[in-house]
Computed example of a mutant assay.
Amino acid sequence: MEINGKIIEILEAKSGQSAKGTWRKQQYVLETEDQYPKKICFMVWGDKIDEFGIKQGDKLMVSIDLESREFNGRWYTDVKAWKISRGDSKADDTQFSSSGDYGSTQSSNPPPTFDDDEIPF
């Protein structure tokens, strides 16, 4: 799934320790440029934060995966970016993917998994 828009806010980065090691995530708020704009908060995990280098005001096409999970009877949905395309010009049409396979949603660095009693937020 892909969303287009402009980065209007960059939230504070978060990091922590899990059984599999150190993790970090960065959340961004993108506003669509539709007739009725929507704001969508998405996250980027690990090394992709530096690789994508997202800045406030950037116009992006963000390829995302949606995933929901249950914790203590409540459901939480994550919007995870796996590819970023920049701008409208050919010079700025750089695509990023941690796996190098731009058509695949599989990442060489999948997001960490957490124990049932551990939530990363």
Rank of each mutant, 00 (worst) to 15 (best):
I84V: 13
D65H: 01
L66H: 10
S15G: 15
S15K: 15
R86E: 07
I64G: 08
A81V: 11
D50T: 11
V79R: 06
A19R: 14
S15N: 14
M43L: 11
L30V: 09
A91P: 01
E33N: 02
R24D: 12
I64H: 12
W82Y: 15
K83I: 12
P111Q: 09
G73I: 03
D34G: 02
G21W: 12
M43N: 04
S15F: 08
M43T: 11
Q26A: 02
K25D: 05
T105C: 06
S68M: 00
L66K: 02
G100K: 03
Y36R: 07
S18G: 12
G53L: 02
Q17W: 08
S15H: 14
G57V: 01
Y102H: 14
K90R: 09
E31P: 05
D47P: 05
W23G: 11
E70D: 14
K6Q: 12
E51W: 03
K48L: 11
W23L: 07
I8D: 03
V79G: 12
K38V: 01
N109E: 15
W23D: 06
I10A: 04
K25L: 13
G57N: 06
I10C: 02
T94Q: 10
Y76M: 08
T105V: 01
D47G: 07
C41E: 15
L60V: 06
S108M: 06
S107Y: 00
V29L: 09
Q17D: 12
W45E: 03
F52K: 04
A91V: 04
D47W: 00
I54S: 00
K90E: 15
F42G: 13
K25M: 14
E33C: 05
D58S: 05
S18W: 03
Q17F: 13
K55G: 00
A81G: 02
Y36C: 08
V29G: 00
V29F: 04
L30N: 06
T94F: 09
T105H: 10
G57F: 02
S97F: 01
D78R: 07
Q106I: 08
E51R: 08
S18N: 15
I8M: 08
K25W: 01
I84G: 02
S104C: 04
E51A: 08
L60K: 01
K20C: 04
V44H: 12
G21E: 08
L66A: 08
T94N: 08
G87I: 02
V62C: 06
K80Y: 10
T22G: 02
A91Y: 03
E70N: 10
M43Y: 00
G53F: 02
W45N: 06
R74I: 00
G103A: 04
V29P: 03
E67V: 12
S15R: 10
P37M: 00
S97C: 13
R74L: 04
R24I: 10
S98Y: 11
Q95V: 15
T32W: 03
K39H: 02
R74F: 11
D58A: 01
E9G: 05
F114C: 09
W45H: 06
Q95N: 14
D88L: 11
W45I: 05
I49V: 13
D78T: 15
C41K: 15
K39S: 07
R24E: 10
I8T: 14
S107N: 13
V79T: 09
T22R: 11
G16W: 03
L66C: 07
K83D: 13
K39N: 13
L11S: 04
T94L: 05
D92R: 10
R86C: 12
S99F: 06
D65S: 09
T22C: 04
Q17H: 12
L60S: 04
Q56M: 14
